[in-house]
Design a binder for these strands. Structure first.
Lengths: 203, 203
DNA sequence: TTATTAAAATGAACACTGTTTATTATTTTT
DNA sequence: AAAAATAATAAACAGTGTTCATTTTAATAA
């Protein structure tokens, strides 16, 4: 009598359906510009039904947040092909930027959006995020084994690197480069990243 | 017959009143959590009246955006007391962080918030922002005159410095330091900034 | 001072938003 | 086939930014 099991499967399926629609709408328009009614319409259910599967809009946020990090980690997998750890670190930076500008709504939900971040640190969704950060820290550590970053605490340096990358990306994403001529904006990011690479190399 | 002049004065006064209330509410609750009706109630006028003085909520955003930068520049004035340009740059970083955590809603509106940034680059409000950035660039240039940052393009380096500071501050403000233990979070920023200073000094 | 004109303020509405609840429709169990 | 449990919904609530026809207030002209 696997009726309970089937019910649970149906439930998960419905959650998945909702999340898929939410996801699609979200990537196009961003979290704030997608309403529960939009999602409901897309899956051809009433708005109230959504609330049978998700506590509120924020719970959908968490799920998408988790998905975004999953996508991010997948995006980073081919780093493994680069043998030299320092080169891999640089490649990681390049891919970080690529991800940012290819999936701006993801980046937003991952690192910028104000959202009740008082979530369960033990949840599935959160692990993907921790994994991403762990990868950076391990890579910095590995660099140290190869003679880079001497007399630098790897945790602190990792955060500093992340901050720098995030700073550039988020300023660009949130249109704070208007101080520069339009033609220079993209170049600014490039040159800045180049200089950053150089600084890291000489560290 | 200075009636037209007085009318214009009244108009500006009303704009000021609205802005002051908006400002107060905004600093407490943040832009998104302040409604036109809130502002209207505070100044004891009907919501529709606001629209006689501001095109929409975004125009109020612009004004507050400008005010924030003004406040920021004022906050930075006492940098002048530091003679050595490099020390002044470091002090600037310290004050940048101090401003961020003292006036988080300001920082938000200045550097993080998604808002139609397709504004008039020639407006009053914008100039304060440009001035702030100009100060950084000039300071970096001055450092170069004193032997710092050799073979580095000052514009690019300025942006890189800004990015790093913004990265640290905005990640903290938007609660993205949950990967670290609660007790370590504040220290992380401190240590990270310390390392940044060291790197800059050796550049 | 009164009538006319111009300006300012508003109440009410529109089309949205997230969310809750009482009601109805569908399944499962007895 | 009847009763119980589950799922889905329509309708409502309280809120949002914004617009517009109407009314109130102030300035000008007769």
């Amino acid at each position: 009598m696997g009726v309970k099991e089937r019910k649970e499967r149906d439930r998960q399926e419905m959650r998945e359906t909702i999340l898929q629609s939410a996801h699609q709408l979200f990537v196009d328009k961003g979290f704030d510009d997608v309403s529960i009614r939009n999602i409901a319409e897309a899956i051809e259910y009433s708005p109230a039904t959504i609330y049978l599967y998700f506590k509120d809009k924020n719970e959908i946020f968490y799920a998408l947040h988790g998905e975004a990090f999953k996508k991010f980690n997948e995006f980073m997998t081919d780093l493994a092909t680069v043998k030299d750890p320092f080169k891999r670190l640089i490649k990681m930076g390049e891919k970080y930027m690529e991800f940012t500008f290819k999936f701006p709504k993801y980046y937003d939900i991952m690192f910028i959006m104000q959202a009740p971040m008082d979530c369960d640190k033990n949840s599935e969704d959160w692990k993907e995020g921790e994994s991403a950060h762990c990868q950076l820290e391990n890579l910095v550590k590995e660099c140290q084994l190869h003679g880079y970053f001497k007399n630098k605490e790897y945790k602190t340096l990792s955060f500093l690197i992340w901050s720098t990358m995030h700073g550039m990306c988020s300023l660009a994403l949130r249109d704070r480069l208007k101080i520069y001529e339009e033609s220079e904006r993209a170049k600014m990011i490039d040159k800045s990243f180049k200089m950053f690479k150089q600084i890291l190399a000489e560290l």
